[in-house]
């Protein structure tokens, strides 16, 4: 088991390296940051000074080595726009995005799992059919448009919830969090729900499919033949079997939630990484773009790694294979 973990770790590092090359080449070969860095009226000497300052006069491979070196030290250079280290700009906004993504994931699980279980256990009830139709809608509705409609209904018409920013925050573990204050929580609700919609449908449908696959199995019938209560059958025998695919999906989808928070953050003016990256793309703020992309690469590779580990812990069959 340790061997396979180490092998996966090495694979993960290779993936990260490969992505550094892609990101670096992509950003450096296409798009010329000099143009936006330098005032068009600047004279030649000024131009050269700026180019030298950012190391843009070096050969590409050398720039790449510098880039790698920077990566290891967490140094992606200063933002062209803010004039501050790109990484710290991103890290400052990380808690906001994490908070949003985690809330959305929790909402998706808390709503999707029970509804999926219900629809799977009682597929012929009208309520189950309604749930399934609703989930198709949840799949097809464009997230950003739903966000707007949520604002229209809950903020503009009903005036129940605010739509802008994080609201009041409180400190915890050295970062600011909205969910710790009442006001912050009310700000978090709409964006989190918006982001959760798509994933709720996904988890719901997966859960239902899983239930329908597990229920006809002999071991469920045998569990009934033992005289177990329906509760134990559903919550232990069925659910435990669902956990394996669900954990995989939930892990993967967490990454995708962070990526998709770009949209929700833009709509609700949520001051997270996503909003920053959109602004940076618009302004060609290269260090921030690169830092963001590398953060995401590392995040995804890390997530995949964690999922693998969880998988091993959850599925006894995999565990044995790894031992053998």
């Amino acid at each position: 088991m340790a061997v396979s973990l180490i092998r996966r770790l090495i694979q993960a590092i290779f993936v990260i390296l490969a992505m550094t090359v892609i990101v670096f080449v992509g950003v450096n070969v296409i798009g010329n940051p000099v143009d936006i860095l330098i005032n068009p009226d600047a004279n030649q000497a000024e131009r050269l000074r700026v180019i030298a300052h950012y190391g843009l006069d070096q050969p590409l491979w050398k720039q790449y080595m510098l880039f790698l070196q920077g990566l290891v030290h967490g140094d992606f250079g200063n933002s062209f726009v803010y004039g501050r280290p790109a990484l710290s700009l991103i890290l400052e906004r990380l808690p906001a995005t994490l908070e949003l993504a985690i809330s959305a994931l929790l909402i998706a699980i808390v709503i999707g799992l029970p509804l999926g279980l219900y629809a799977g256990l009682y597929p012929n009830r009208i309520s189950s059919r309604l749930i399934m139709s609703g989930s198709i809608l949840g799949f097809s509705l464009p997230t950003f448009w739903v966000g707007l409609m949520l604002i229209m209904v809950f903020a503009v018409e009903l005036r129940w919830l605010p739509t802008n920013g994080r609201g009041a925050t409180a400190e915890f573990l050295g970062a600011q969090w909205s969910f710790l204050t009442r006001n912050g929580l009310s700000h978090l609700l709409l964006p989190a729900f918006n982001l959760a919609l798509f994933k709720t449908s996904l988890i719901l449908r997966l859960t239902r499919a899983g239930v329908q696959e597990v229920l006809p199995q002999d071991y469920i019938k045998f569990a009934r033949a033992k005289g177990l209560s329906e509760r134990r059958i559903v919550f232990v025998h069925v659910l435990k079997n669902l956990m394996i695919p669900l954990v995989t999906i939930i892990g993967l989808e967490f990454g995708s939630l962070i990526a998709f928070s770009v949209v929700t953050e833009s709509i609700f003016a949520w001051p997270g990484m996503g909003k920053l990256i959109i602004d940076s793309i618009n302004l060609l703020d290269r260090p921030v773009i690169v830092a963001y992309l590398m953060m995401m690469v590392i995040l995804f590779v890390g997530l995949n790694f964690i999922i693998d580990v969880c998988y091993t812990l959850l599925d006894p069959r995999v565990r044995l294979d790894a031992k053998a």
Partner: peptide, 8 residues
């Protein structure tokens, strides 16, 4: 997003 960051 990555592609648009690169391509504009």
């Amino acid at each position: 997003l990555m592609m648009l960051a690169i391509l504009g």
